[in-house]
Each structure stands twice: as C-alpha cells, then as structure tokens.
C-alpha cells in the first residue's frame, strides 16, 4: 500500500512539473481542498491563507495559468518536485500521508532580467488526505506547510 501511495504522490508531482494541470485537477475529490496556510494555528475563518482552493477556485487557478497572459507568469514557471520521507497512516476511510518536498522553480527567458533565470527552492512538508476509491486514490486535501511561512514570500503565482 505504501508503494501505491508513494507512486500516487510522485505522479501528482509529475503532472505539475509537466504542466498537465487539467489532469492534476482530476486527482481531487469534488469536495477536496488545496491549501497553503500562512500560520499553523489560526481561529477558523479569521486567518488569511496563501492558497485556499475549493474545486471552483482550483479550476479558476488552472484556467488562469493555461489561458491568460499575466505579468507574474510571463514567462511561466518551470518546476521540478523532489518528494521524500513519505509516511502513511490509515485514518478511517482516508489515508493520512506526510511527505517532505523540495520544489525547484525557475522562469526562463533572458537571465539578465530581474526575476528570470533564478533558481528558487521551495521547501515544504506536504500533507495529504487521500481517499481510496474504485479508480484509485483521490486527494481529499493537499496541505502545503512552507518551511519559511513565517517569513516573506516572493512570486508564488504557480501551482506547487
């Protein structure tokens, strides 16, 4: 089972790296959540998150990335995910999965331009709640705990 789970997470990372965003969307449950919190413990409903995407917001994010020209993704980011330290526990009808991820991001183009050609490293613990169904796993929640969430962030206008 751990191997199946690990393979699923590797594939999820690969879809993002390959910019196959529509396939990435289909990995989620309809009521699934993609969330990047700003703080660890927050009063519910009273703390802004960096990303707080339900199904519609995920679709919007992908539509924006794929169809629109906008300054923060011109040129677009390339990413490469490194996934390790996968730990999985069964919790009711869900699998609770924790992983360490090192996500390298760079934007191509003329490297003399500010912000382009720089290699940025995003270091995060990425926790998943996975639901096992007839068609394999579905993501019920993907929660990205940025290591430097207490500090300042640069341009994170891509999916990570």
């Amino acid at each position: 089972m751990l191997q199946d789970i690990t393979q699923f997470i590797y594939r999820e990372a690969r879809l993002l790296d390959d910019r196959r965003f529509d396939d990435w969307l289909s990995l989620f449950d309809d009521d699934g959540l993609y969330i990047v919190p700003l703080v660890d413990e927050a009063p519910p409903g009273r703390q802004a998150a960096i990303v707080n995407d339900d199904r519609m917001a995920r679709e919007e994010r992908v539509y924006h990335l794929v169809n629109h020209w906008f300054p923060a993704q011109q040129p677009p980011s390339r990413t490469l995910h490194f996934v390790s330290n996968v730990v999985a526990d069964e919790r009711g009808d869900l699998w609770s999965v924790s992983s360490s991820q090192l996500i390298h991001e760079t934007r191509g183009g003329d490297w003399t331009q500010v912000g382009l050609g720089e290699k940025n490293a995003i270091v995060a613990r990425v926790d998943y709640l996975l639901r096992r169904g007839d068609r394999g796993f579905r993501i019920h929640e993907k929660r990205v705990h940025l290591l430097d969430r207490a500090g300042w962030q640069g341009n994170l206008a891509f999916i990570y």
Partner: peptide, 19 residues
C-alpha cells in the same frame, strides 16, 4: 486570498511590474 498574497491573482503581478 483570491487577489492578494504571493499566490493571489493580483499582488504578484504588481510586484513583478515593480521589478
């Protein structure tokens, strides 16, 4: 959350333009 913050649809565009 939709517009501001590092992954929002607005703020990152402004800071990119500033650069």
């Amino acid at each position: 959350e939709r517009f501001y913050g590092p992954s929002g649809f607005g703020m990152a565009d402004d800071t990119e333009i500033f650069a």
